[in-house]
Amino acid sequence: METATTEYSRRRWLTFLLGTSLGATLVSFLYPVLRYLVPPETSEPSLSEVELDVKASDIAPNSGRIVPFSGKPVILFRTAAGELRALTATCTHLACTVQYRGDRSDIWCACHNGVYDTNGTNISGPPPRPLTRLDVAVRGEKIVIRRA
């Protein structure tokens, strides 16, 4: 009977070794796959200033347009009073791109009906945070946007 017990514990030890080896092998297969699924951080040129190919006179009072700013959409608009402003155009709710509504002089997201005022403050609907303000300057005829 003593032999049987030894056999048994030896079997258990072998099963343990086999199981942990298989487990470790599996982890070594899965780890690279899981890492592969996560895209690398892109080293986009994170510009702090962009000169747009837009003339200041192209933007009429109480209207706006979307312009690219280091790969992200930015809303450039002129208030009814005539001031040029720029805000990040990605809605803080679920990332749609906002637009300037001339009839109400506000900024509106069509996806879930979020509304911001011309300072970028969220005033109605689901957006949880304001849009980020960017500096706008006019250099000659060209418009320059800069991180505030």
Binding site: I66, V67, P68, P73, I75, A89, H93, L94, C96, T97, V98, Q99, C109, A110, C111, H112, N113, N122, G125, P126, P127, P128
Partner: peptide, 28 residues
């Protein structure tokens, strides 16, 4: 990617209830 989301945007019918629900939820 550099145009605003168009008015009247909505998903396929089977996501509409979730989509509409998200509109009514307050910010907090």
């Amino acid at each position: 990617p550099f145009s605003p989301a168009p008015a009247g945007i909505r998903p396929e019918w089977y996501f509409l209830s979730m989509f509409q629900g998200l509109k009514y939820l307050p910010a907090e």
